[in-house]
Amino acid sequence: MSIWITFALCAVDAAWPQAASNTQTPQAQQLQISGRAQGGAPVVAQQSASGSTSSSVNTLNTTITVQGAYQGSVPGPAMGKGAVPLTLADAIRRGLQYNLGGLDSAASARQQRGLRLSALSQMLPNIYATIAESGAKTDLQTQGLSSGVLGAGIALPTTVGPYHYYSAQANLSEQLSFTSLHNLRAATASRDAAQLSAKDARELIVLAVGGSYLRVLATQALVASQVTQVRYSESSYRQAKDQFDAGTKAQIDATRSMVELQSQQQRLRSQQTQLEKEQMALERLIGLPLGHPLALSRLCLRVFPLFPIPTQRFKKACLIAPT
């Protein structure tokens, strides 16, 4: 039995016409436009000052407007029964983990990294190897060799073999062009832009969740204050009614107290409805089920940076809510 092994290495496309014909000429890839859409930022914070008719103190109202994917989130883990204790730091962590805006930006960044690797692969050499095996036999009679040719005392076999042939080939081909180089640079720029967009998305989530959290606390304080106003109006109305029944006060005074009580009760119902809406909006941002009761933090705390962004700093914030 004979074994033949052949190794071949090709470094030039011209030596392998078949391999060169399979390669395609790289085409220029159009660079996508990065940055925010023309509609503006999906999270906007606005401040407005409102005066009070009863005092000379002006109130600064902050409104957080959230649009697009940042309004929703994927469902988080199942929560137990009862109110969910939630601090500002916990709310921001949940927002960074479950908010759709952050997940969408992270997926876009991964996609751009994959496109850059695809553009880089167009500039790298293509290496492939083939291994083949073949076997054959030789019929001596067809070659004119038989026992009678060499004499009566010599016996030859009918066939000789089988013979096995082994071949191993390693092929290398590479095609360089300025188009591939420019495509790689464009893909690198898109990847860097996607990474910056992902960091910007995290900042927007912090703004949306933090603003919504503080807005809920402010509305809770307004509801508690309005409850006190309703109790005060109820006491005033009962006093005016007792005085009217005793004949020491006119009916119009009792009617005025009743109208004031009903106005305060209507304002309380409106603020309670607004509180429920803001709590549901906060729950949508951080992946909590809608309508689940929340127990927000009522203590002063210091919030430290939650992720390694050099420009991100949180200062001391006092979170005050009604008792």
Score class of each variant (00 low, 15 high):
Ala11Thr: 10
Ala189Trp: 01
Gly291Thr: 04
Tyr163Gly: 14
Leu204Cys: 05
Glu260Pro: 00
Pro125Ala: 12
Gln46Asn: 11
Asp139Lys: 11
Val227Lys: 14
Arg313Phe: 09
Pro322Val: 01
Asp139Ser: 12
Cys318Ile: 10
Thr159Asn: 15
His292Gln: 13
Ile33Val: 12
Met79Gly: 10
Ser235Ala: 11
Ala132Tyr: 00
Gln47Gly: 04
Ile5Trp: 15
Gln143Ile: 06
Leu96Thr: 07
Gln195Gly: 01
Pro308Tyr: 03
Ser73Val: 06
Ala201Ile: 01
Ser52Thr: 14
Ala152Gly: 11
Ala89Gln: 12
Leu294Glu: 03
Met79Tyr: 06
Val230Lys: 08
Asn22Gly: 09
Asn22Pro: 00
Ser54His: 12
Pro17Val: 09
Ala45Glu: 02
Pro17Leu: 13
Gly161Glu: 14
Gln112Phe: 04
Pro157Gly: 11
Val43Glu: 02
Ser225Thr: 15
Asp104Arg: 08
Leu217Arg: 12
Ala194Cys: 02
Ala20Tyr: 06
Gln239Glu: 05
Val223His: 07
Ala218Gln: 15
Leu282Ser: 02
His164Ser: 12
Leu222Ile: 11
Arg191Ala: 11
Pro75Gln: 05
Thr53Asp: 12
Asp90Phe: 01
Ser197Gly: 03
Pro162Phe: 11
Thr62Asp: 13
Arg313Met: 03
Ser121Asp: 13
Val44Lys: 04
Ala14Gly: 10
Gly95Leu: 06
Val223Asp: 08
Pro162Met: 13
Pro308Arg: 05
Val149Asp: 08
Ser257Lys: 11
Asp200Lys: 04
Val303Lys: 01
Gly80Asp: 07
Ser56Phe: 05
Ser118Gly: 10
Pro305Glu: 06
Leu115Phe: 07
Gly151Asp: 03
Leu86Cys: 04
Ala295Ser: 08
Gln262Thr: 06
Gln71Ser: 01
Gly40His: 02
Thr63Asn: 08
Arg116Gln: 12
Leu9Glu: 13
Gln243Ile: 03
Met280Ser: 11
Gln29Val: 15
Ser297Ala: 08
Val209Arg: 05
Ala78Lys: 10
Val160Ile: 15
Leu156Pro: 02
Gln226Lys: 13
Leu306Met: 09
Glu133Thr: 14
Leu285Ala: 09
Ser54Pro: 02
Leu103Asn: 05
Lys249Trp: 01
